[in-house]
């Protein structure tokens, strides 16, 4: 295993998580390639190979649209996430691409202080090297629970 790759993915993931947790969502699509694929699903759907997602995007434009919609159109109570990430499990690495999986815990804190463990799961990723940085060509967010409390507005 390449230590540098391990460190690079770690750095990438914590930056990604901070982007969401610090509510700088407009920068979130920039972690992806233009022709990216992003999906939020559950372990049951993933194992049964059921293709639908709670969020399903096959372009960076669709990710940008999701953030625009969250900012301008959708109505949901003020809330924040805190991502706690595991270490990446690197499954395959080439000069240009990496396949890796990383576990996450996400707490959701609502206006008024109600705090719950909102989601746990793993990112199933295909990362692409772009100069010195990494970009997500594909991120499938596989949640461990089939059940979502109330709504999933902010992406994971």
């Amino acid at each position: 295993m390449s230590t540098t790759t391990f460190e690079a993915i770690n750095k990438f993931n914590v930056t990604y998580a901070a982007c969401i947790d610090e509510d700088t969502l407009e920068a979130w699509p920039e972690f992806f390639t233009n022709d990216c694929f992003y999906k939020v699903t559950t372990i049951e759907n993933h194992q049964k190979k059921l293709p639908a997602g709670l969020i399903y995007a096959d372009s960076k434009g669709m990710l940008q649209d999701r953030i625009s919609s969250l900012r301008e159109a959708n109505i949901y109570e003020r809330q924040r996430y805190r991502h706690i990430l595991g270490m990446p499990l690197i499954e395959e690495e080439t000069d240009t691409a990496i396949r890796a999986e990383t576990a996450f815990l996400v707490s959701r804190v609502m206006r008024g202080g109600k705090m719950d463990l909102f989601a746990t799961g793993k990112y199933v990723d295909e990362l692409q090297r772009d100069g010195d940085r990494l970009l997500l060509r594909k991120r499938v967010v596989v949640c461990d629970s089939i059940s979502i409390d109330t709504l999933l507005a902010i992406p994971l």
Partner: peptide, 11 residues
Amino acid sequence: KVIGQFKQMLP
């Protein structure tokens, strides 16, 4: 055919 199944808990 089923293409996905999700559960949502409503308060």
